[in-house]
Design a protein around this nucleic acid. Structure first.
Lengths: 216, 216
DNA sequence: CGAGCGATTGAAAAGACTCAACCACCGTGG
DNA sequence: CCACGGTGGTTGAGTCTTTTCAATCGCTCG
């Protein structure tokens, strides 16, 4: 039970266990704006995102996207619906060119049967995400858009690491859960307050501490 | 892969598998307003709710509760944090007198090791809840309070079955994710529109179809 | 009977959204 | 090489939902 649990299933496995999964996939390259799967489809297996970023989003009644998660390199994608035996409730679409592999349900479940570490990692990941989502629900319900943008920028800067955050205003708005125009106005405020640096599409978090203060 | 998957882990197991779990617990009675566990505590096992209702909630920054889930008879509670190896992120508190049993982590994990059905049911339940929560996030972000109240009333009327929904205005507001006063005003509207019947604490859904229409 | 919690109402303020218009950048095709 | 079209970004104004604050009510329980 170490504290350094990283996002995703695979990053927390040892090299051998991880390779047991990744050796089975054939990596293909996908362009930006490619759909990996769509809501309503029956899951056939899981996807391994080797490089790139993928947005996972649900569609609201008026067709507005709610981005639930942005997956990064090393993550498995699409396992939730597979395990629940349901159809996908969300869409997965590449945000940039990605290298992605596929593993059929039979193969993956076969590995899980043989490999207790993998089984535990899957269980643990599902449980962890469920907890995160409880917190997320609370934030969404109780925090102002300003606070949520601060949270989002911090989370995204983790994901993007050294690179600047690179999302359209609309995607960012759909991630934060607000209107595009509201997001733009707040970005402007944050820039004027020196919290972030903005180069059109590229955002750089400058003052983590102050963003944390906004969240409070 | 039947379609009639019911909420919770145990209700979807066969009688034998279910009893393997419930036979190990010693049922105790808890009064209304009893705390089962609190955020920050280290999980020691799981709880089996034989009868009664339990609210699961997170606390926001200003101390406001966000009710994530209301558990009913037959449900297991508290497994998420146990599986993720984290401390509880949420609180569990009885909404009425309850009969509850406890099963230690070792006992439960031991059962899972021996019983594939239980293992699968746990996995499936976690995956299912995770999907539900994605939909919930989308609703919270995109729907009006009025729409969310309609959804909530429908969900709660499932849980309460024949009996009227029995929650304080504050709990209901914290479930919907709104201010108590806003909730009260909307309840009044719904009552005037004949959608529900209100007897102080007891709510009865009268017009399911019209509530669905509000959600759209 | 009084305390206190839960429920209710009114009025005002605030936060966020919508709509509409306009700008800016970029790749394309003439 | 430049005009064109389109997508994405920005701004302003007005509206509306929802929250907040303050006050009142009413029931229940010791």
């Amino acid at each position: 039970m170490s504290n350094s649990w990283r996002p995703g299933i695979l990053p927390n496995l040892g090299k051998a266990d991880r390779n047991a999964v990744t050796d089975l996939v054939e990596i293909k390259t996908l362009d930006r704006h490619s759909t990996i799967f769509s809501a309503g489809q029956q899951p056939k297996g899981v996807y391994f995102l080797e490089t790139g970023k993928v947005k996972i989003y649900a569609l609201g009644n008026e067709g507005k996207q709610q981005i639930i998660h942005i997956a990064g390199p090393g993550e498995l994608i699409g396992y939730r619906a597979m395990f629940s035996g349901e159809k996908y409730k969300v869409y997965a679409e590449t945000l940039e060119a990605c290298r992605i592999g596929f593993l059929s349900q039979d193969e993956f479940v076969g590995l899980m049967d043989k490999n207790r570490n993998l089984r535990d990692a899957v269980l643990r990941e599902l449980a962890k995400e469920l907890g995160e989502r409880a917190v997320f629900v609370t934030h969404l319900a109780q925090q102002t858009v300003r606070q949520r943008l601060a949270s989002s920028l911090l989370a995204l800067s983790e994901l993007y690491g050294e690179e600047p955050i690179n999302l359209t205003r609309e995607d960012l708005a759909n991630y934060v859960g607000t209107a595009t125009e509201s997001l733009i106005r707040l970005l402007k405020e944050f820039r004027e307050e020196g919290l972030i640096e903005v180069q059109t599409r590229k955002l750089i978090v400058k003052e983590r501490a102050k963003l944390l203060l906004i969240i409070n």
